[in-house]
Write a protein that binds this DNA or RNA. Sequence first.
DNA 1: AATAACACAATGTGATCACAAAAAAGATTA
DNA 2: TAATCTTTTTTGTGATCACATTGTGTTATT
Lengths: 238, 238
Amino acid sequence: MMDKKSPIEITLADRDESVTITQWVYRTLRNAVMNGQILPGRALTIRELAKILDVSPMPVREALRQLSAENALEIQGNRRVMVPRMTAMKFNELCEARIAIESHAAARALPYIDAIRLEELRALDRLIDKAQDEGNLEDVSILNQNFHRALYTANPHQVTLPLIESLWLQLGPFMRLATSKLEEHYLVDRHNEAMTAIEKKDAFALQLAIASDIREGIAFAGTPELLNNFIQQAGAPA
Amino acid sequence: MMDKKSPIEITLADRDESVTITQWVYRTLRNAVMNGQILPGRALTIRELAKILDVSPMPVREALRQLSAENALEIQGNRRVMVPRMTAMKFNELCEARIAIESHAAARALPYIDAIRLEELRALDRLIDKAQDEGNLEDVSILNQNFHRALYTANPHQVTLPLIESLWLQLGPFMRLATSKLEEHYLVDRHNEAMTAIEKKDAFALQLAIASDIREGIAFAGTPELLNNFIQQAGAPA
DNA sequence: AATAACACAATGTGATCACAAAAAAGATTA
DNA sequence: TAATCTTTTTTGTGATCACATTGTGTTATT
């Protein structure tokens, strides 16, 4: 026959003291999803995860529910939970949603960007360039998120970041697969365009820069060949 | 002194058989939030809600976590939970976010709207007009949501509805306060404009119609006077 | 009378248990 | 051998309990 169940290898998050176990489990599982450590379609059980993370089932239960509410996990009718499967169409929808929402968030944040924020963004941009030169794709990905987050949160009344993070989370596993091939491509630094637009307080140019940044960061991940490699991963047919 | 705690009056959702208690509690609390039955800033405790709903603390715990993840509730630093307070700026951000995301969702759904879907939308539109004439604002609000939902879900690969519902949930309590004054205003029927745009497959016109629909539905709720009446509701200063 | 110290009650977190439903495995039959 | 039925195991759900922490009301002190 075939092997029983594909094993799950989860890297444990730092166990910061004075943080609840539930929060730690949530962080750990969230990272595992974003890092693609859990195959889409693979059924997750509370007890199994509890054993892996060496905690009682209770914190796992809560973390799973939270992640499901954030669309990071999907509850099947059988009330079993798994990482949602991806399709080319859905991938495309997620990207377009990112562009629509994030360019909106950027434009809304623009009036609030002062000198201090601007320098913060510049510093992040430099770090990204550095990590890029060193070929440290892991850091590029994280720093890139930090750049976007720093931009949007400049708006103190901002309400879209949770929605954006939800989209990141859904794209996460598949972006990662894409970025592994990222170094092969010439990468236009759209962040410079964004910085210029910010300095000029040009909302429209900023939106274009953000849109391009998103599009190029994941364009080749959307190619049917690459996508289809990962769409039907965990063998179940339905 | 002052009264101890403001009592909570929650209308219980229909207890559909073969649905888990957690789901029922979730539905009940979700409705309570949208209907403004829970005052913003009012601290909620698991045990109190469990007693009101006559269930064990466990389902309440799970429902609260889910609602928090959907931004319907907010976890204070004390890890106590409450309906988030509203500010005029935040209200505005939520409206603008709705416009950006929903007009995007509408445009993305447009190509998928066939004759059957079109008729479904027309039927909903007629129901809304009818409820409007009868002054049944309760139904108008619900049917209006159904209209938007039916439009966006025409796209079978749609991914934004959960995000949109999150925004509805956050605006819910305050929209309701607004709609109570709605009959005083002349209401342009933007749904007709939307229907026309859909028939013509004119994405841009559709986006404009949706944007106008959202803006007018809540415009006067955003007036400082009306808003400030409800912003500092539950007396706590911080 | 205002404030600080204390004691008591209430709360979230996490663990454990019981149970019905669902999966998986095994046995049986065509 | 393939399909169907039966048995066994596993799983999510919900209830209850223990405990450390926080909130609250009371008393004592200046």
